[in-house]
């Protein structure tokens, strides 16, 4: 599975949404299930799947799908 596909599958699984809903513009205001708990679960799954650790500031920055991708790209994830 490509890293892009892995990213989408994690987001869909944790938030319980369809692949078509994983748009760059989406924020916690658009995705009802994007709560503090699912955000943490997402962060943990990214760290486990892509084998790196975020720092606190990066976790704080990930307030949209686009910014989430930007942070992951900094760690070499091919998105």
């Amino acid at each position: 599975m490509s890293q892009e596909a892995t990213f989408k599958s994690i987001v869909c699984e944790i938030f319980g949404i369809q692949e078509g809903d994983v748009a760059d513009t989406k924020t916690p205001e658009d995705i009802e299930s994007w709560t503090s708990v699912t955000h943490m679960q997402l962060v943990a799954r990214f760290e486990e799947s892509f084998k790196f650790q975020f720092d606190v500031e990066e976790i704080t920055e990930m307030d949209s799908i686009a910014s989430m991708k930007n942070v992951l790209r900094k760690h070499g994830v091919d998105l």
Partner: peptide, 27 residues
């Protein structure tokens, strides 16, 4: 570590909790 539930189990780390809390409070 960050734990939750009954019975509680690990769901993350202190660092992840702080980062997440800061993001939601900034929003």
């Amino acid at each position: 570590e960050f734990w939750m539930g009954n019975p509680a189990r690990k769901e993350g780390t202190y660092k992840q909790f702080i980062g997440t809390a800061k993001m939601f409070s900034a929003m």
